[in-house]
Design a protein around this nucleic acid. Structure first.
Ligand SMILES: [Mn+2]
Ligand SMILES: [Mn+2]
Ligand SMILES: [Zn+2]
Ligand SMILES: [Zn+2]
Lengths: 149, 149
DNA sequence: TCTTATTTGCAACTTAGTTGCAAATGTAGA
DNA sequence: TCTACATTTGCAACTAAGTTGCAAATAAGA
């Protein structure tokens, strides 16, 4: 069990059952990664997960591998928020309710905010404007309230 | 002058006058970078510019520096399209008309499309949903028509 | 042409992320 | 509970993108 960050509502047993649910072995590293992501306020960069968990003796390569595997298993989304750094976010576990949502990233301070309350609509300016594909993820960049002059 | 890519409507003299217009010296490297970006169908990664121009004897560090300088001078936008790779796009030169536009990136093939014809609207689901800041750039990710099953 | 500040090429460096492999460990079955 | 085996881990070495310091080259103005 690991300290720091948000209270951390995810018990050890809950983490284990989530892993078993997708047919993955319950290892200390994976549990630690899940708990770290869960305790975080916003999506974490691999670097921040590594920095955090290396303190506890986990190896960098193990953490990268865990993040990738958890992502492949569908437990974690990998966000590409556009500062040339990936971020990982734990998906809602029990309740499938929380919908996909856009993310906002401040170009000044780098803060990432989940825009859970928003839908995005693309409107063609002309009649014949045709969407280039099926959209699945939206990122909004800009200046957060703190950084706006 | 450099071959390959799109026809390339930007003459040598035009490139030079653009550089002078922002008070930058006209060097072979900068002209080559501008022409490469101009000839490209869609925003280029630094890597692709480097690969392309190194063939002509330019040094990697020079190209990175040129891209950064052209960006700082406001001639080139640096897009963070979310595959942990930056991309550079030449801004419309004479006519200031072409508006900022969203970009679409296919998560399968990596293709980037400029969604010049689109506006994006964020709609709060609830009354009290408040935007986290002032949005300035939009990225849509998804599956392009070619890659959609 | 001359002068000087700017820019370039080079090579060395940094840093994030990846990989191969032997040792450690989780899990299913006896 | 113990065993056997496939999976996972730590380590160290590696890769690749991007950066940096510096002496040589060069653009631009006088
Ligand atoms: Mn989110
Ligand atoms: Mn564009
Ligand atoms: Zn901010
Ligand atoms: Zn595609």
């Amino acid at each position: 069990m690991i300290k720091g960050g948000k209270p951390g509502r995810l018990t050890l047993e809950a983490a284990k059952s989530v892993l078993r649910g997708v047919g993955m072995r319950c290892t200390a590293a994976r549990i630690a990664v899940i708990q770290a992501l869960e305790a975080a306020e916003s999506p974490m960069t691999p670097g921040s997960v590594v920095d955090f968990l290396c303190e506890y003796g986990f190896d960098k390569s193990t953490i990268y591998r865990s993040l990738t595997e958890l992502n492949e298993a569908g437990l974690v989304v990998r966000l590409d928020l556009g500062d040339a750094v990936r971020r990982f976010e734990l998906l809602p576990l029990e309740n499938d309710g929380a919908p996909e949502h856009p993310h906002f990233m401040c170009v000044d301070c780098g803060k990432v905010v989940c825009m859970s309350g928003f839908d995005v609509e693309l409107k063609g300016r002309s009649r014949k404007a045709r969407s280039p594909g099926i959209m699945s993820e939206i990122l909004v960049r800009g200046h957060c309230h703190d950084c706006a002059t």
